[in-house]
Design a binder for these strands. Structure first.
Lengths: 343, 343
DNA sequence: CAGACTGGGGAAATCGCTTTCCTGGAGGTC
DNA sequence: GACCTCCAGGAAAGCGATTTCCCCAGTCTG
C-alpha cells in the first residue's frame, strides 16, 4: 500500500510538501516541486488514506443519511435529492436503512457519530413514543456537541434543521377539494396510529371535514405501506371517497378494489399523498397531494451543511393534484381551483 | 470530544485495557476493570473514533455500493438486498450514485479505495466502451492490490466476483413464450446500443426469433428509462408484440400506447424485463422476465465478503412471467409452459 | 546596501486508537 | 519449596495523514 511518505521519498521532497500538493492546503508549492510530487503520485498509484486524513483533520467528508426503506420510492426520492447536494459539496454518502425500527435509527446515529460524519440527515416520520424520541435526541445532542450537524425531513421534534412537509394543511386542502367534488361519506386509510406523518395527515383531513360540517369518516388503521393500504381497503364500508395517507397505500387500495371488481372512480374515489413520481403511469392516475420530495431532501442537507448555528425549520406546503382516481359526484357545483392534470 | 484516553483516565486503567474492553479484542479483561471502564465510557458518553480505529486496524467496517440511480427501483432493490447482508455482517454502507456516468463510476471506485472500504459492489450494466472498462479495471485492480474485495452485479467483465443475470437466455425464453402465443411480428425497444445489459437482452431476443424462423423485428434504440420506452414506443410500426428491454421502459411504452388510444394487449402486446416489484399493481399487469434483484445484490456482497481468493461468477436465470399485457393470438396452439400468474 | 519582509520548504508533534511486547503475580506440578 | 506456565495489565510503538513552527533565501524599501 502506497503511502504519502512513499510519494514524498520518490519525489525527493518532504512529507509536508507532498501533503500540500496532493491533499489541498492554503500554502503554495512551487511549480517544479508540485510537478514532481504529482508525477510520483500517479506513478506509484497513490490513494489518500482517508481514515488518516480524517483523524488528522478532525473532520471527515462523509455525510450520513438515515431512511426507513430505500425501496420505498418516497425515501429513494428524498435520498436522491440529498445525494446530489452531497456530491455538489464533494461529500460522500453513507446510507443506513432502519426498516422502520426506531432502535435501529438510534443505533445508526451513534454509529455515524463514531464515523465522525459531517452531517446526518434523518428522513422519515417520527413516532409518537416520547421515550424513543428522547433517546434519539440524546444521541443527536451528543453528536452535535462534537461538532456534527443534523437535519431532518419530517416533524420538527429533534431540535435540528428541519424540512417539514405540511401534512395537516395538505390533507385539509385535499379534504376541501374532495368535498367540493360532492363527496360527503369518506373513509381514511390511516396507517399506524403512532406514526406522526400518518397521524397528522389523518388529523388534518378529519378536522377539515368537521370544519366543513361533514360527517365523521370511517378511520381504518394499518401498515404504512402498499400491503397496509390493500388490507385496509378491504375493511372500508359505504364511503364514496377513500383517502389513503400515502401514495403507496393508495396503490394497495386500488389493487384491492380492482380485485374485488369495485370500479375506481365510478364506485369509489381514491386519493393518496406524496405524489410519488414512479406512479405517474398508474391507472387510474392517482389524485394526491404533491410534495417536492427530492427538493426536500436536497434542502434539508443544504441547511445542515450551511453551518447556521440556530436550527432552521422550513415548512413545505403540499399541492393538491386531482387526477382520474376521483370523480365529481352528480350535482356538485364546479368551483374547484386545484391543479388538475391533463391525461 | 471524549477520547479513549479520557475514559481510561476516568476509570483509572491503561489505554490498552480501555481499548480491549470497549472495542473488542481477543484478550480477556478482568470483571472489575471491565465494569469500571464501561461505567466510565457511558458516564462520559464515549464514542469510538472510527477513523482512528480504521487507521490503527488498517481495515474499515464500511462497504461501498455503486449504483446508477437509486430512484430506479431496479437498483433500489439490488442495493436493499446488499444492505441487508452488510448489516448482517456489521458493516456500514456507503452508497454512490453515478447517474449513468461511467467516469463517475471510476471516480467513486477511487474514492472508496481512499476510504479503505472493505468491499465494493458495482451494480449496473457495463458499457461497450473498452477504454472505459479498462480504466475501471485498472482502478479496481489498484483497489484489490491493497486488499479490497470487489463484487459486481451484471456482466462478468471486471475480473471480480460476479452475479450475472442471464440476459440473453432470459430474453430468448421470453421470445419463445411470445412466439408460442402466436406472435410473429415483433418490435424491440432496445435501449442504448452501448449498454451491455440492453444489448444482450436485445441480442438474445433477436437470435431466438431467428432460430424460430420468424421475421426480423424492428429495433428501436433509445434511453434505458421510462421516457426512453415512451419515446421508442411512438416510433414502432406494425408489430403485434413489443419487447422493451426493461420494465421501466415497458411502463413508458404502455403509457405512450394509452395516450394514443392503442389498447394493450388487444392491439399490441407488451413485455418487459426485470419484474420490478413496485410494478405489480400496474394495469395492465406486465409480462416480464423475473430476476431476483434483492437476492442478486445480497449474493454478490456475500461473495465479496466471503474472502474467497479466485473470483466466482454465478449466473442467475430469469423466469418468464406471462401477465395481462400480452395476449394469445387467435389460432395459436396452447402449449405454453411458462409461469402464468393469476390476477 | 542594510534591514525588514515574504514565501516556499522541511522537521516534528499530533490526531485517537490498536497491538506487540514486557512484567509481575497467581496457580500447578514434581 | 523451586520451577513453570498462564494470564491480566501496562508501556510504547506504530497507523498515515495534517499542520505548526522554524529556517533560509530572495525581494523590497528607504
Amino acid at each position: 500500500m502506497v503511502t504519502l511518505e512513499d510519494v514524498a521519498r520518490q519525489a525527493g521532497v518532504s512529507l509536508a510538501t507532498a501533503s500540500r500538493v496532493l491533499n489541498g492546503s492554503t500554502r503554495q508549492v512551487g511549480a517544479s516541486m508540485r510537478a514532481r510530487v504529482e508525477r510520483a503520485a500517479t506513478d506509484l498509484g497513490y490513494r489518500t488514506n482517508v481514515a488518516a486524513q480524517t483523524l488528522a483533520r478532525g473532520a471527515s467528508n462523509v455525510i450520513g443519511i438515515v431512511v426507513h426503506d430505500l425501496t420505498d420510492p418516497y425515501f429513494a426520492a428524498i435520498a436522491d435529492g440529498a445525494m446530489r447536494v452531497a456530491a455538489g459539496h464533494g461529500q460522500l454518502v453513507m446510507v443506513a436503512t432502519t426498516h422502520r425500527d426506531p432502535e435501529q435509527e438510534i443505533a445508526y446515529v451513534a454509529t455515524l457519530n463514531a464515523q465522525r460524519v459531517r452531517a446526518v440527515l434523518l428522513a422519515g416520520s417520527r413516532v409518537a413514543d416520547p421515550g424513543v424520541t428522547a433517546r434519539l435526541r440524546e444521541e443527536l445532542d451528543r453528536y452535535k456537541e462534537s461538532g456534527g450537524r443534523v437535519a431532518c425531513v419530517g416533524q420538527d421534534l429533534l431540535g435540528a434543521d428541519t424540512v417539514a412537509p405540511d401534512n395537516r394543511e395538505g390533507a385539509a386542502a385535499l379534504a376541501r377539494s374532495l368535498a367540493e367534488l360532492g363527496h360527503t361519506r369518506f373513509a381514511v386509510l390511516a396507517g399506524p396510529p403512532d406514526l406522526l406523518t400518518a397521524a397528522d395527515r389523518c388529523a388534518g383531513f378529519l378536522e377539515e371535514l368537521a370544519a366543513l360540517g361533514l360527517p365523521e369518516p370511517e378511520v381504518v388503521h394499518g401498515a404504512f405501506d402498499r400491503d397496509g393500504g390493500y388490507q385496509a381497503a378491504t375493511r372500508t364500508g359505504e364511503a364514496t371517497c377513500v383517502f389513503a395517507v400515502n401514495d403507496v397505500m393508495a396503490v394497495g387500495a386500488l389493487a384491492a378494489y380492482r380485485e374485488r371488481g369495485v370500479r375506481v372512480p365510478d364506485e369509489v374515489s381514491v386519493a393518496g399523498f406524496d405524489d410519488i413520481v414512479t406512479l405517474r403511469d398508474h391507472v387510474p392516475a392517482l389524485t394526491t397531494v404533491r410534495l417536492p420530495l427530492a427538493g426536500m431532501g436536497a434542502r434539508a442537507l443544504e441547511l445542515a451543511l450551511s453551518g447556521e448555528r440556530t436550527p432552521t425549520v422550513e415548512r413545505v406546503p403540499g399541492t393538491v393534484v386531482l387526477r382520474d382516481s376521483v370523480r365529481r359526484l352528480p350535482g356538485a357545483p364546479r368551483t374547484t381551483t386545484d391543479e388538475v392534470e391533463a391525461g
